[in-house]
Design a protein around this nucleic acid. Sequence first.
DNA 1: AATGAATGAGAATTCATTCAT
DNA 2: GATGAATGAATTCTCATTCAT
Lengths: 191, 191, 191, 191
Amino acid sequence: MRKEEKRIEILKAALKVISGMGFEGAKMEDIAREAGVGKGTIYEYFESKNALLLEMIQYCTKCFQEGLEKTLAEEEDMLGKIRNLSMYGAEFLNAHAVLMNSQIVHQALPKDMETQMKRDWNLIYQTIEDEVRKGIHIQEIRSDIDPEMAVAIIVGGVNQYTFKKLMEDNFTPREIDHTGIAKTILAGLIP
Amino acid sequence: MRKEEKRIEILKAALKVISGMGFEGAKMEDIAREAGVGKGTIYEYFESKNALLLEMIQYCTKCFQEGLEKTLAEEEDMLGKIRNLSMYGAEFLNAHAVLMNSQIVHQALPKDMETQMKRDWNLIYQTIEDEVRKGIHIQEIRSDIDPEMAVAIIVGGVNQYTFKKLMEDNFTPREIDHTGIAKTILAGLIP
Amino acid sequence: MRKEEKRIEILKAALKVISGMGFEGAKMEDIAREAGVGKGTIYEYFESKNALLLEMIQYCTKCFQEGLEKTLAEEEDMLGKIRNLSMYGAEFLNAHAVLMNSQIVHQALPKDMETQMKRDWNLIYQTIEDEVRKGIHIQEIRSDIDPEMAVAIIVGGVNQYTFKKLMEDNFTPREIDHTGIAKTILAGLIP
Amino acid sequence: MRKEEKRIEILKAALKVISGMGFEGAKMEDIAREAGVGKGTIYEYFESKNALLLEMIQYCTKCFQEGLEKTLAEEEDMLGKIRNLSMYGAEFLNAHAVLMNSQIVHQALPKDMETQMKRDWNLIYQTIEDEVRKGIHIQEIRSDIDPEMAVAIIVGGVNQYTFKKLMEDNFTPREIDHTGIAKTILAGLIP
DNA sequence: AATGAATGAGAATTCATTCAT
DNA sequence: GATGAATGAATTCTCATTCAT
């Protein structure tokens, strides 16, 4: 129990430090300091730096996934769900920039992390794909739509817009037009 | 002249090695070997590893930008342009995975790089935004669309789909349904 | 405490190695070996090689200064003081040749070191100047003498002679005629 | 002839660069730039960096020696000679700080340089010792004086004073009281 | 269990020297 | 002869990991 709590403490510290300095920029010492423990202590809880990062990614995607399911459940229709996805994603991205755009990270990390991250992200995609399929079923979404494509457009579109607004235009998550992006994704671009 | 060529040679080698091993995984020695020069030679052309990476990113975004403009010019209508964007992006991503989604890199690199990268990527966004505005003008795209959102959905959607197909499903760039994703982006998801 | 001791240990090792191989000839690895620690350990105590050298010089001048005050206090009259200065300087020079004539070092070291060294050496000069002033006061030394000149002649003359004897003629510190040089400095060269 | 001139050009450049950056701080490239030749060209004239430095020291001490003899010959009595030594030394030191205080350099340089420098400096000491002996002969200097000590006091005293004034107090060579230091050395410190 | 001092393998960088032009 | 681009051995410095306290 006590042990499990400190584990989480270290994972959170790792997330924070990595969000600020990137994967390789994060030194074990920084993480230890942030977690308020000694450098050696981390090794009581995690095999190695890589193991820590790996668990951190899992922890983080699990958190995201759980919050995502809750936020999606709060809304009935597709528009509301995408808007909530955008809002939730923006806050998460704002807090932990590094992880949201996980694609690139693959390359820089050992193979085992890559695999893990693929698995974790597939879960998130799957969650959204389920919503898309439900939408198709109740005819909120066209039946000729490839659900995989729909997920890509929703996730990619929302992410890209959010990222741009947060990082380039220095918006706060609240200032982003989540409804607008959701509507545009749904309605498409043509007349 | 000779000097400029070798510079490019080293940049290409850096791109290749970094694409395979990530930013930190790439050792100067590897890059030198790949470029067919001695370790010290790189320092004749670039101040430091960071400087090399910075220039490499710039070089790469410049290349992407140029190819992008050409590929967009080959098509008349929006559908064709997005399809070409998807195809072109897939091939580029396939060749140099690291750089396509350079957002993440921000975190790991010094501040001056961040600024440069923002500038470079804005150019790419701008190029696509120009196309969107043209599309609005000739009423191919709805006039109530926020061009910035349209760009995000196009770029984000295409990237996300491409990335998924290439990395997760191990498609080759040719096997991806570029027309399908383009149509779906344009037509939207609702009936 | 333990930490401070090891610091001194490393400083002593640095002094020893540098005395033997010169500033640039001394490699961090040599210093580490001499100190009986690992290469990385030095960096736990000192920022960089230059920082280590700087502190080493300071430590060394401080040691010299302290010993100097003690040895000067042992004698009453000017002749005894100069003789003791000569003896003490010879032993110090014999042990750590590099540092005695630190003037030259100025050139090779960063600006901040230069400042520090000037300050440290001024202290040593000041100590001797104080003795000269006392000597003037009790009319052991002529009142028309510029104390600054007197210091230069005492320090320069003693050093030069000592250096010659030790380095050129391979005398041991004991074999040098310290009384002779002291007498000659005091009495001057003319009839 | 042409060859010999360029040789001298490089030697002068080496002296200048070394005066500014110290022995190890001086890079071959800097010396080449200062001399207005290519890096490779230096190797047409000198075997190696060490060989260049060695010759530079010799060249420099030869120059000093020649100038010294001339300046000493300009004066009849000991006072004038020491005053001239002080003036000449100050100007030389002002121009080429590194070399005047050659004592310390020994340690940092390879053995062959040390030997050469000892030989060169002995020549300079010898020149002054000759003057001292002459002075003793014509009873300008006391006959019980050890000439070696006299030389040390003259050279050391003058150097130390000059160095202090130039480096610490930022005097120009002209502003130094050369007559004062010469008189004090000769007359001694006691009443 | 917790710590942080110690470590050394490994990386970036420097620079005297070479050699093709 | 002159050059400066190329080189790699040698050096400084980093940081994940270990381990005695």
